[in-house]
Amino acid sequence: MAELLLLDPVVHKAADALVQKVTRMWGVDGDRRDLELKRLLYVQSLLDDAEAKAEADTEAGRAVKAWMKELRAAVYQADDVLDDFQYEALRREALSRRSTTSKVLDYFTSRNPLVFRYKATRDLKKVLGKIHKLVEDVKKI
């Protein structure tokens, strides 16, 4: 049951309007929807069965426990990636109120939006791949 509590905020964050705005703008909204609807909600349904199996002191129970540990790490990564998208949306709102000079200077700092965009989209695809692999692994268990 604890795993379900872990997934809930991440699913809501993936559906957040700010996250949707940035992912649409960057052309990765399909990946965000895939994370929200196909992966996280599907994993949530798998967890009910997995938690019951994890209680058993069998080889399958230990395998499920290990899977759940990996899943927890992947969900935390997904949460971090979605936090990055929320941050970027809020940063853009704040940036719209700044001068043009200040906006241009951001391209020469660690807040470079192009670098940030590349990193965030790469991280989103990476976490999607990880969750997809975990879903395939649990089917084998």
Results as ranks from 00 to 15, higher is better:
A2N: 12
L4E: 05
L5W: 02
L6R: 10
L7A: 09
L7T: 00
V11C: 01
V11Q: 08
V11H: 00
H12K: 15
K13P: 04
A14N: 04
A15Q: 09
D16N: 15
A17I: 03
L18W: 08
L18I: 03
Q20K: 15
K21T: 15
V22F: 00
T23N: 04
T23Y: 04
G27N: 12
V28C: 15
V28E: 05
D29H: 14
D29E: 13
G30R: 15
G30W: 06
G30N: 13
D31R: 11
R32Y: 05
R33M: 13
D34H: 15
L35K: 00
L35M: 07
K38G: 15
K38M: 09
L40C: 04
L41V: 13
L41T: 14
Q44A: 09
Q44K: 08
Q44P: 01
S45D: 14
L47V: 15
L47R: 06
L47A: 08
D48G: 10
D48Q: 12
D48F: 07
D49T: 13
D49W: 02
E51A: 14
A52I: 15
A52K: 15
K53E: 08
T58Q: 03
T58S: 14
E59F: 09
E59Y: 03
A60D: 06
A60T: 11
A60S: 11
A60R: 13
G61F: 01
R62T: 09
V64N: 10
K65D: 09
K65S: 12
A66I: 04
A66M: 11
W67D: 13
W67T: 12
W67Y: 07
M68I: 11
M68L: 14
K69C: 02
K69R: 12
K69Y: 00
E70I: 01
E70Q: 11
L71H: 05
L71Q: 07
L71T: 15
R72D: 06
A73L: 07
A73W: 03
A74L: 03
A74V: 03
A74M: 04
V75F: 01
Q77E: 10
A78S: 11
D80Q: 06
L82I: 05
D84M: 02
F85C: 08
Q86K: 13
Y87N: 11
E88M: 14
L90Y: 01
R91L: 08
E93F: 06
A94S: 06
L95Y: 03
S96M: 07
R97Y: 03
R98I: 01
S99R: 07
S99T: 14
K103F: 00
V104M: 12
D106T: 14
F108T: 08
F108C: 05
T109M: 10
T109S: 14
T109A: 12
S110Y: 02
P113Y: 00
L114I: 09
L114H: 03
F116G: 01
F116C: 02
F116T: 04
R117Y: 00
K119C: 02
K119H: 02
K119A: 04
R122C: 01
R122A: 07
D123Q: 13
L124C: 03
K126D: 07
K130P: 00
I131D: 00
I131E: 06
I131Y: 00
K133Y: 01
K133H: 02
L134R: 05
E136W: 06
D137T: 00
V138F: 06
V138K: 05
V138A: 06
K139W: 02
K139A: 11
K139D: 06
K140I: 10
